[in-house]
């Protein structure tokens, strides 16, 4: 278990990616603590009286050279829109790292990382760790259109990247589960993160083809620590907390109709 911390981090950059996403980069005077790919952080949102709870945000990347934590944030509500207003030099209070990450890296594995929308965020750090551990990641990223495909150049540093867009403006037209790479290449396992319907489709594909598969969930949560029991998911072991027992689950454990 990686130790958890409450830290005041400084905004080193807040980059507007498009109308719906920001990339918030946070740094510290001290070395950032160990964080595993697939884990998340809880960000305190200051300056908006309508926002009470912290916001759970997945760890997009940890840049060890610049000592920066990257959070790729989709602007979905009042909390994230308040975070979008942060500027360089502002301080942000963060609890981290939370939850269990993706599966440990096994040397020589051919891992397909399938992301959709904001769900592509945690796959970047995992891709880097897979490469460092001697595995081979391949990325399959799905989005509505070309403008929604984020961090493409970053992903390309760690493996082959395939894209699907719903309107066909980049990569293959359609959904991730229709992409030709699924038939042209073999993978030892799949890790996926994105909208639930997408992950269910990916899980169905994996099950039908006998490929191991894990999915990262994002149920609504309060504490992020396994205390409030609000973010539960139905599993073969009953209600489990996405925050503490997940957010990454083997699909065999989930009671999805697959």
């Amino acid at each position: 278990m990686v130790k958890k911390h409450i830290l005041d981090l400084k905004v080193s950059a807040n980059i507007k990616m498009n109308d719906k996403f920001i990339l918030l980069k946070l740094t510290s005077g001290e070395k950032l603590p160990e964080m595993l790919p697939g884990q998340f952080v809880e960000v305190r949102v200051d300056g908006n009286n309508d926002v009470f709870l912290r916001r759970p945000i997945s760890i997009n990347f940890v840049d060890e050279e610049t000592n920066e934590l990257w959070l790729l944030i989709q602007l979905v509500g009042k909390g994230t829109r308040t975070l979008a207003k942060l500027t360089e030099g502002d301080m942000v209070n963060v609890v981290l790292p939370l939850g269990n990450g993706f599966s440990p890296v096994v040397k020589g594995e051919q891992v397909l990382l399938i992301g959709g929308g904001a769900g592509t965020a945690p796959l970047l750090l995992y891709g880097k760790k897979l490469v460092e551990g001697g595995a081979v990641p391949t990325f399959l990223l799905g989005a509505r259109s070309a403008a929604d495909v984020l961090e493409l150049d970053e992903f390309k540093k760690y493996g082959d990247v395939y894209v699907t867009t719903e309107d066909g403006s980049l990569g293959e037209k359609g959904f991730v589960t229709n992409h030709s790479v699924l038939t042209s290449q073999k993978f030892t396992r799949i890790s996926t993160c994105g909208p639930k319907p997408m992950m269910v489709s990916v899980a169905k594909y994996a099950k039908a083809n006998g490929v191991k598969c894990e999915a990262s969930l994002e149920n609504m949560m309060a504490c992020g620590l396994g205390a409030c029991l609000c973010c539960v998911e139905n599993t073969t072991e009953g209600h489990l907390c996405v925050c503490k027992d997940g957010p990454v689950f083997n699909i065999e454990k989930l009671l999805w109709q697959i």
């Binding site: 009286n49 009470f52 149920n219 309060a222 609000c230 973010c231 139905n234």
Partner: peptide, 10 residues
Amino acid sequence: YPRMAEIPMG
């Protein structure tokens, strides 16, 4: 699930 809702100040 869902078991929670955020409200202003709580």
